[in-house]
Every structure is written in C-alpha cells, then in structure tokens.
C-alpha cells in the first residue's frame, strides 16, 4: 500500500465509485422487489448474468444494433417476469418462492454453462481515459455512473408523478386499501415486478461493459445486491443507489488493502453492520 501514490489511489477510488453506480442500479431494483413487493427473488442474480451474456453476444456475434436489441431484451424480460409473477410468485408463500426462484436460478446458470461454457467472456472494450491532474478516469465507467443515476432518477419520477407510479406506491403501502379504490392490486404488483426486471436487464447491459461475465457471476451480484439493500434499509430505492456507491468505493479500498481477501473483509463489514444497525443507513428518509 505504501508504494501507491495519490493519483493512482484516486484513480482506483473513482473507478470504484463508478462501478458502485451500476451496483446501485441493480440493487435498487432488488430492494424494490424485496422491500416493496415482498418477493424474495433468488433468481435475480442469474437473470442479471443472462442479460450480460446476451449483451455480449449481441455486440460480438449477432450484429443487431443496440436499440433493437434493447427493445427485444427489455420486452422479453418484462413479459417473462410478468408471467412469473402472475402464475408463480404472487400466489405462494415466501419460503416456497425462495425455493422456486432458486430452482430457476439453477436452470439459468447451468443453461449458460451448457450453451456458453464456463469460460469468462469480456467485451474487451478499449477504454478511453481522460487524465485530470494525474488521476485517470475511464470514460465508459463515467458514462455508466451517469446512466445509472439517470435511470434511477427516471424511475423515481415515474413512481412519484405518473398515475401508474402512484398506483404502485399505493399498492405497495396497503394492498387491501388500494383494492378499495378499485385498483386490481395483484395486477399492479405483477407490473411493478416486471418493471424491476427491465431495470435489471438494463443493469446487465451496463455491467458487461465494465466486467467479464461467467455463469457463476449471478451469485456474486445477488449477494452484492443483498448487502447493498440491507445497508440502505429494505425497500429504500434511493438509499440503495447511494449505498451502491458506498460499496463500490469500499470494494475499491479493500482491493487496495488486499485483493486476496477483499470479499472476506467485505463480508465481515457486512456482518458487523448487521449487528450494529440491522435497519439500514437510510431508513430515516423512507416513508413512515
């Protein structure tokens, strides 16, 4: 650590912050599912991994533009998750859902192994960097940070300003009372769940520009999003973004200290956090 000069230190930190933004994006979507919709989705990470793979193949082999690809990907994620929510999750108890989603996760992960092999794939984008006072900033990462912030802001605006968004908030707060207003609560939950999957698909596209992907990557991201949304406080979407930044930052620092044990230290920090403040950092800001 002693050999590290200040600009390289800053470089690593800023890079951590940028990846943290993408972490924040998918964690917000996870937090929304778990905290607001009360769906314990263990297949979350695997769907994220699949989106990364599909983006990889779109870019490397399929030669379809990013826009048609996005439409197809978002559309299919939306439809699949709507159907999953409607026919499976909404009717069952939490622990049954945990097992079912676990099964789905296994299917996706192993299908990826079977079809794409367990060899890690990376887009291998040649990264353009800008240098400010010796600090290197990768443009791709910077773009991803802003993109995730914008997407989340958009989602927040959607929840706060549109009829559909307000309806979702009403159902999330009290399903029964919402149905008294003539709202078909179950349909709204299915819709909200699907929206969280569209966010997930978008995170996958962004994530693969930063990291390589392999079939087991889902487990790691699943765990990350769990950590992040616990630290933020369950269901707190905006908080999840900020704790995503925090975790990205922290990962960068831990990697400087010891890349070998970064994950282990991260986990210990998480355990200590759970003991000290199990309700999360940003709970005060959330609804009362």
């Amino acid at each position: 650590m002693g050999s590290l000069d200040f600009p390289s230190f800053m470089t690593i930190l800023i890079s951590g912050l940028c990846t943290g933004g993408v972490y924040g994006l998918f964690s917000s979507s996870f937090s929304f599912q778990l905290g607001a919709l009360n769906v314990a989705d263990f297949s979350f990470g695997s769907w994220l991994m699949l989106s990364m793979y599909l983006t990889f193949f779109m870019y490397k082999e399929w030669n379809i533009g990013i826009i048609p690809f996005g439409v197809i990907l978002f559309g299919s994620y939306f439809i699949i998750s709507f159907l999953m929510s409607k026919f499976i999750y909404i009717k069952r108890k939490t622990d049954d859902n945990m097992i079912i989603t676990m099964g789905i996760s296994l299917i996706i992960q192993n299908a990826a192994t079977l079809l794409f092999s367990s060899y890690p794939r990376s887009l291998g984008i040649i990264e353009k960097t800008i240098v400010v006072g010796g600090v290197q900033i990768t443009i791709t990462k910077l773009i991803m940070l802003f993109l995730s912030a914008i997407l989340l802001l958009g989602f927040q605006l959607f929840l706060n300003k549109t009829w559909t968004g307000k309806t979702i908030r009403a159902v999330v707060q009290n399903k029964e009372v919402a149905s008294l207003m003539g709202i078909n609560s179950n349909r709204v939950i299915n819709l909200a769940f699907s929206l969280s999957y569209v966010m997930l698909a978008a995170s996958g596209i962004m994530l693969v520009t930063l990291f390589s992907v392999e079939p087991t990557a889902g487990g790691f991201y699943q765990m990350m999003s769990f950590f992040i949304c616990i630290i933020a406080g369950l269901g707190n979407i905006r908080g999840a973004f900020f704790s995503g930044l925090l975790i990205g930052f922290l990962t960068a620092i831990l990697n400087i200290i010891s890349s070998q044990f970064a994950m282990v230290m991260m986990f210990l920090i998480f355990v200590i956090f759970l003991v000290v403040k199990p309700t999360g950092l940003f709970t005060a800001k959330s609804r009362g």
Binding site: M102, L106, T113, L114
Partner: peptide
C-alpha cells in the same frame, strides 16, 4: 460432457416439486 445439464434438471425438479408436489 454436457456440463450444466444435470444442474438444469435439478433446478427443474426443485421448482416443479414445490409447485406440483409441495
């Protein structure tokens, strides 16, 4: 050979059992 195939089958078994034979 066919790495991943058993995993797919087990995933299916797990999910289907919970749904149809809890």
């Amino acid at each position: 050979t066919y790495a991943g195939l058993p995993g797919i089958i087990y995933g299916l078994i797990l999910a289907l059992f919970v749904v149809f034979m809890p």
